[in-house]
């Protein structure tokens, strides 16, 4: 607690963290170098690409770990009597609201992913919102209805595809003779200037992140809510 008095004043532009040239360089150089107005996305997907790639791998690993811990196969041995209270019959208001809301939520999630350069957003947020739309479907109907769209076999394929897209961009750079995840070299493939190539490949990387996060969020929910049986949700 006594250390608090040593912290810099709140909102001081000249505090050590703010006056360090790395973060100042990120502010001033991001747009000239990558043509992305949102500095957070640019630093996330480009300058710190390694970081984000392995964060995605961490999320993937967490999803695998939860499947390994909780997943059970075979028929249910005992039904907890408490669960019978939550037997649901279709509710008109909830059904209609979900039918109207879910497409809008998914559209918004795609907008967040695709427009992450120019406004707050990006792969993580868009992926979470897209996964939340499936969770809403599972809450409003039951887990079966949501699993028609995202069956268990498809979850791991989707999550793997996301990481594959991300790492694929990295290895493509490597193949073209540049550093791993150094997107500027990709202008040879895309046919735009090196600066815009960085911007476009950031979009591709964000899409990869969004795939993984969507799949893993729904996988975590469906395992937690069905206690590993993947049969009935809440």
């Amino acid at each position: 607690m006594s250390a608090v008095s040593d912290f810099p004043d709140w909102g001081d532009p000249h505090s050590p963290a703010n006056s360090y040239r790395l973060s100042q360089g990120y502010i001033t150089d991001t747009f000239p170098q990558t043509s992305v107005p949102n500095m957070v996305t640019a630093v996330l997907a480009d300058y710190r690409g390694y970081d984000t790639m392995f964060e995605t791998v961490v999320i993937f690993t967490a999803g695998i770990a939860i499947i390994g811990i909780l997943r059970r196969y075979g028929p249910k041995d005992k039904v907890i009597p408490e669960q019978k209270l939550y037997k649901k019959e279709p509710d008109l208001i909830v059904e209609t609201t979900c039918r109207l809301m879910i497409p809008i939520i998914q559209l918004f999630a795609l907008y967040v992913v695709a427009h992450g350069h120019h406004s707050p957003g990006g792969g993580f947020q868009g992926g979470v919102i897209f996964g939340a739309s499936f969770i809403l479907l599972a809450l409003a109907r039951d887990l079966q209805a949501a699993q028609k769209w995202v069956p268990e076999s498809r979850i791991l394929k989707l999550a793997g595809t996301g990481i594959f897209i991300y790492a694929g961009f990295g290895f493509l750079c490597l193949l073209l003779g540049s550093n791993f995840l150094d997107y500027a070299i990709l202008h040879k493939v895309m046919g735009v200037t090196p600066i815009e190539a960085r911007s476009h490949s950031m979009l591709g990387v964000e899409i990869g992140v969004a795939f993984t996060v969507t799949a893993i969020m729904f996988s975590i929910y469906s395992n937690l809510a069905s206690n590993g049986y993947m049969k009935e949700g809440l």
Binding site: A17, S23, T30, V40, L44, V58, A62, A65, F124, L224
Partner: peptide
């Protein structure tokens, strides 16, 4: 400062997956 935002952005998402585990 965008740098701290980036670091924390990933920390939140990793936080929810550790909560899930």
């Amino acid at each position: 400062n965008p740098l701290v935002h980036v670091l924390m952005l990933t920390a939140i998402v990793v936080g929810v997956s550790t909560l899930g585990v």
